[in-house]
Structures are given as C-alpha cells and as structure tokens.
C-alpha cells in the first residue's frame, strides 16, 4: 500500500485510531487536533498517557506554552512580539482566532503576535487543555508587563500558580490576581532578589 496517498483515518474503528495516536508524538497529536473539529473531538476522547502538564510562562521577556512529560519538554510554543521576517509561516484558525505559526523544529513553534498576544496564548492554551486534559502550571511575573491583567483570563483556573517579583506590585494588585485565579493545588508568591 502506498504511504503517500490519502487515507480514511477518521473512519477507522475507535480502538485502531487510539492505537495510531499512541504511535504519534504530542506535537503530531496537536497538529492532528488542529485539522478539523472532528479530529479535535477524537483527540479529546483518547487518553494520552505519559504527558504530565501544560506550563505557561509569562513575563516581560518571554511568553511560551510548553507541553511536558515529567521534566522533558515535548513541545514548546513561544510567542514573539515581532512580525515574522520569513514567509514560511502558516496561518491556522483555532476557535475562530487566526494565528500565524512558524515551525522551527520537530517540537518547537513560534507564534507572532505583536499586538494582543494574550488572544493567541488563550486559544492555544484552551485548545491544549481540551485535547490533553492536563493540569496547568503558570509562571507569571506581572511586574514590567504592560497591563498584566489582560493575561489573567488565560488561566482562570490552574493547578499551580507561581507569581514572581510579587513585592514589586501593590497589595491591591496582588489581591486582584488572587481573586481572579482559582488555584487548585499550590500558589506561591515569590519576592524579587535584592
């Protein structure tokens, strides 16, 4: 059988699809879940053993989402504030939001979002949460971020929340974060190094 032709993958029995998906990496599963609503539903209904958490890091220098298997990063999606200088990117529509994705390696992606990066991060995090059903770990440093409150809707509920440089924002601001984020297991507020 030729391996280059189209194949009625979605018409196979569920157990066969599950078996096929277990042969794919988490990056490939994410790509497959982005193909159509049906493929997303299928990926949602399959258990993905091995993966442990989704990690979001947001500070003034970096913004990225990582899918982890223990300590190993399976796939990483970083957000850049600059427009892509290349034309090799692709434009995917996730939950009606169009995002430009540049694949840098097997499991390394970049999203360009010069304005409102929170929208791109939110759709991507929501999509991954739907597909993989993993707990969310958030590393958040509001100090230095312009209007940090806009990032809070990305993680209204998370498993672990680590807030850095918490002494550099006011008590009211800190309280605002505590009031707007439900932490299921652990919340830590670290002070900046002096």
């Amino acid at each position: 059988m030729s391996e280059s032709t189209s194949f009625p993958f979605l018409k196979l029995p569920f157990l066969a699809i599950q078996n096929i998906v277990h042969n794919l990496s988490c990056t490939e599963i994410t790509e497959l879940s982005l193909c159509s609503r049906r493929s997303k539903r299928l990926m949602q209904s399959i258990r993905h053993p091995g993966l442990t958490r989704i990690e979001i890091t947001i500070d003034r220098l970096r913004m990225y989402i990582a899918l982890l298997k223990g300590l190993e990063i399976c796939s990483i999606w970083s957000v850049t504030k600059e427009l892509f200088s290349t034309t090799d990117y692709r434009e995917d529509v996730i939950d009606k939001v169009s995002i430009r994705i540049l694949r840098l390696g097997n499991s390394n992606f970049q999203i360009d979002a010069p304005t409102q990066p929170e929208n791109a991060i939110k759709v991507l995090v929501d999509h991954m949460k739907d597909v993989f059903k993993l707990p969310l770990t958030v590393m958040f440093e509001p100090f230095g971020l312009e209007n940090y409150r806009r990032f809070l809707p990305i993680f209204p509920v998370c498993y672990r929340l680590y807030v850095y440089s918490s002494d550099k924002i006011s008590e009211e601001e800190l309280q605002f974060i505590k009031d707007n984020v439900v932490v299921e297991w652990q919340a830590e507020f670290y002070k900046s190094k002096k």
């Binding site: 391996e3 096929i20 042969n23 497959l32």
Partner: peptide
Amino acid sequence: ARMLRGKNT
C-alpha cells in the same frame, strides 16, 4: 502512524 509522522496540519 507513519503516514502522519512529521507532517504539519
């Protein structure tokens, strides 16, 4: 799975 491996969306 080999047919899908390494491919983008």
